[in-house]
Design a protein around this nucleic acid. Sequence first.
RNA 1: CGGGGCGUAGCGUAGUCCGGUUAGCGCGCCUGCUUUGGGAGCAGGAGGUCGCAGGUUCGAAUCCUGCCGCCCCGACCA
Length: 573
Amino acid sequence: MRYSQAFIPTLREVPSEAQIPSHQLMLRSGMIRQVAAGVYSFLPLGYRVVKKVIAILQEEMDRIGGQEFHLPALNPIEIWEATDRVAAMGDVLFRLENRRNLVLAPTHEEIITYHARQHIKSYKELPQIWYQIQTKFRNEPRPRSGVLRGRQFLMKDSYSLDATWEGLDQSYQKHYEAYHRIFSRAGLRFFVVGASSGAMGGSASQEFMVESPYGEDTCALCDHCGYAANLEVATSALSPVPRLDPSPPLELFPTPHAKTINDLIEQFGVPEERCAKSVVYIVNSQPVLILMRGNDELNEEKLAAALQTTQFRPAEPEEIEDIFGAAPGSIGPIDVPDSVRILADTLLRETNGLISGANKDGYHYKNIDLVRDVGIIEYFDLRTVREHEPCPQCQQPLRIVRAIEIGHIFKLGTKYSEALGATILLEDGSEQPIIMGSYGIGVERIIACYIEQNHDDKGIVWNPALAPYDLSLIGINVHKDSAVRDIAEKLYEQLQQANFSVLFDDRSASAGIKFNDADLLGFPLQLIVGPRTLKEQTVEIKIRRSGERLHVPLDAVISTVQEQYHKLSEAEI
RNA sequence: CGGGGCGUAGCGUAGUCCGGUUAGCGCGCCUGCUUUGGGAGCAGGAGGUCGCAGGUUCGAAUCCUGCCGCCCCGACCA
């Protein structure tokens, strides 16, 4: 491609809406332009990167036996009602209501299961891995960070169909390995965490994560043993609050100025871990009292897992007054109405000597014994892990980091096959729903994360794997200096014959503009043809990542480019 | 959906508080000449419904009301 003919609208200044480096650089390098919040056009340069990512995805999915589909983005709403996901997804699901009710698919479990139901009848036809790379639509309440969270985005989604749970394990493992290869080939530094399966349903789930301050997820990591978990499910090795023996007697005491756990600690000198914080949630319109140790933070994802529902919310202060007869700062587990279900974090399991509200304004109880004084308590892991707590595997301190999710693998089980009636006959003649897995990779996120990890103050630093072009061929004064022009044109031809994709900067712009644009676009190699080096019958090769410059005799240019390019490609893997 | 910020030419912005020439500047763009190894110089030029609608006023980018859009924080996130 000749630069003079190319549509690559680079920007010298950073558009004010872009806050993070990848967004700024994708705009500045002319890869993308915004059309609306969370909606972007990929311009030719950016789309070349998309296509390279897609090629990697296809190769690695094909390698594990995946078969590529192209499923429709327009789905009849009925199929989404059948799995109850119209309600589950709420406003995130785009709906079209002219003539026939349709939705824009945010994911494709339903359609995949629909086809499986149509045609898969026997265990003999399994396993299958079906995938596609397609545009997904999700009406995100808050798109952000450029293409990192869009309302329309490209996803590689795949689905495994198995007859047995062991088969699912194998399909899941294949994806795990394929995902490792994909992200490694893309040049990303990433890690894998155990994750919540959320509203998708199903059992095991892991997320592939890129550490970044701009991430929307938080993970607990152990640098010592490699433990890694999304904070939604992370645990630590903290010891439960030990029982006192003998159990001291229950005692009501006035606490007129204590509204919070910290007030109790400051005013009465009680140890934090002996305080039981009471939190009230309304779960399916029923009140639930949740006891947490001290100032431990309730984790709503864990609560959802414990309750097996996401239909809950914190109670309003007025509701708490109505139910407990006391303000939120004075409630506790003693003398609660029978209708209130009581949950407690496992750190409080069957312990005693606790201080908590008395359900009477201005009073607390001390020496509460959860076994002696409180009715039925259900114990669950409900707390949010904090920085420096001991790793659950090796007791070394945990690190808490922000991360961007680039891939997610799920053991779905039979949720969708049951809802849509996708069943098979087994060897013994019995009928059983197909056992499914679901696996996703965000294409734009790979690109944005790559740029987050590979840029400098001049621009992007592409590796061969994702680079939109292999190299920039820069002709200095091409339009005036016929010697430069002839050599550059000749190299342009030869490089293309040697199968390199080349952006030939044949513009009449000054050298500085060309150098800066080349650094901004950041192709792995720059080949600089100018009168200065041509006097010595050489041209210059600049390696973008290292900044290293080689002066190469004219007859050795192609072979040196091949050699350097090969080196850069090797370095990635 | 709650909180905050912003909306002036392709990009970045001044002016808005305190209404008053023809809305200013840098970059980019067009023409000409001179330049050309890290974002050239000179000269000339084009480009604006000041987000939209209504209101106040002799007069509105500026004040008031409503709406729309974008960004950030939070909630949400299969």
